[in-house]
Design a protein around this nucleic acid. Structure first.
Lengths: 270, 270
DNA sequence: TGAAATTTGGAATATATGTTCTATTTTGCT
DNA sequence: AGCAAAATAGAACATATATTCCAAATTTCA
């Protein structure tokens, strides 16, 4: 459609960036999906690529032509030919990375990726399905969900807050901006979702104590079972995250946070 | 022909060795060629493989059956699936899951854990070490690091902000609380770290545009290479993450965020 | 050496996959 | 709001590719 077809992956990428500024909806989806899944082009059919991008095969075809190819086959040929023999698998790649790049940013990346994967794997083993269901049910029944999580837990709390908003779940994030803590906003019929990790911030623990004394249900997202929240009557989901140095990779925690949000959101919309 | 088809590359190799002792001439050629060119199976046609081995397509077909497959296609599927790493396609799987709405909380958890692990693995493949180093260096040299990331990117921005604070790196989080945007706080010698994902929030893009026009370096953390930040001169780290409708599992993104924070922190303290 | 069994080549067929076409929907503009 | 242009979905069509079949060639063994 435009000039000639890209002759290398590099040219292909340039072309993709070039073109994707001004693309209608469906074609944009193609561009996004392709950008994120270049490696699949070599081994997939148009139908698979189209489904992945969430469009019709014909739309994907148009996309190929906009990129300068005569069709999908020609585009695929480029990727098949440049496929030199596969990357090393994950574990060898990781090993390689650490050895040759000791102390560099890339080596760090390897470590954290590894830690994250281990944490996620561990999450599956440690989460009790029953407790998870209980938490979802409690939150789904709430008139309003109050979320608190400060300092290192704040990213998690703010993420949950965003997710709830998107799913039309009434929720309020207690961020303590300006030193205002709106304890009184929490009313009978509401539920508190508290997120806290060692070292546990006092404000969060205080809030849980106060609220739980009033008989309001509390769902807690915390590390290990010895957290200070344990002494109150809470539904406790504990996540043990693999640390690297002093830094906590939040992979597992955020994963659980999404699950909780989505599960609550879908349950409420039923 | 024989018993059942190999279910993994490992099994495939064992089977190949097993069988190749007692093979007639043409089939032996197939075995030899395949052993030396396993990687081509994923991206070739029977005709191509047959030609490579110096036999007729039909001979190659027989060879596939002797290995236990129903035909070439089945054998190829094995290699295609193991090639593309992150199979099956999580975004479509999750889409189906939501459509069928049969996702119990635990099932959801499984899906998201898988998705997170795939995203992390993918991160290793897509991040360019050179770009990562450049980003670390730019940030390490900054007098002050300004962080912006709104809406869905806010958890990431706030996490980075927390990490920098803990490492005594001068940083300022532009959260837009109260509608105040402190553009003027950004001065020569500073660096902007912008986090944004589709749909890209206008405020972030605007800030990048304004700041980059003033010649201030910008490091961008974004998804795919086609994000709107691309048109400015930024050091772009792109992360492709599996998402669930409007929800992004931030595993890979946060992992990169930690790496960036820690690398910058240690570099500055040297 | 000759008959039976096995292996092979190549054409015929079935199937999967890519591509095109057009009615319908959406978008952009006055 | 109404019109023209662009974009899209889905089915129809064309092509590439896998698979099967069988006659011819080769091997095996008495």
């Amino acid at each position: 459609m435009e000039d000639r077809a890209p002759a290398s992956i590099k040219q292909f990428e340039e072309r993709l960036i070039d073109v994707s500024e001004s693309l209608p909806k469906r074609l944009r989806q193609c561009a996004d999906y392709v950008a994120a899944n270049k490696d699949r082009i070599a081994v997939s059919t148009v139908a698979e690529m189209a489904e992945g991008a969430g469009v019709q095969p014909s739309a994907f075809m148009r996309f190929c032509r906009i990129l300068g190819f005569s069709g999908f086959s020609e585009m695929q040929r480029l990727f098949r030919e440049s496929y030199a023999g596969g990357w090393p698998d994950y574990s060898t790649r990781l090993k390689h990375l650490r050895e040759k790049a000791e102390g560099s940013a890339s080596a760090l990346l390897g470590e954290f990726v590894d830690a994250g994967r281990a944490s996620l794997e561990n999450l599956l083993k440690t989460i009790d399905p029953k407790t998870l269901d209980d938490a979802v049910e409690a939150l789904a029944k709430a008139q309003m969900i109050h979320i608190i999580g400060l300092r290192r837990s704040f990213p998690v709390a703010s993420y949950i807050s965003y997710a709830f908003e998107k799913m039309n779940v009434p929720a309020m994030l207690h961020s303590g901006v300006g030193g205002l803590d709106n304890h009184n906003a929490i009313r009978t019929g509401d539920v508190l979702l508290a997120v806290t990790f060692s070292p546990y911030s006092a404000e969060t623990v205080d809030m849980v104590e106060a609220v739980s004394a009033r008989g309001i249900p509390v769902v807690a997202l915390t590390d290990t079972i010895v957290s200070p929240l344990r002494k109150f009557e809470t539904i406790t989901l504990s996540v043990s995250e693999v640390d690297f140095g002093a830094f906590r990779s939040l992979s597992a925690t955020l994963c659980l946070a999404i699950v909780l949000s989505v599960a609550v959101g879908t349950k409420r919309s039923e």
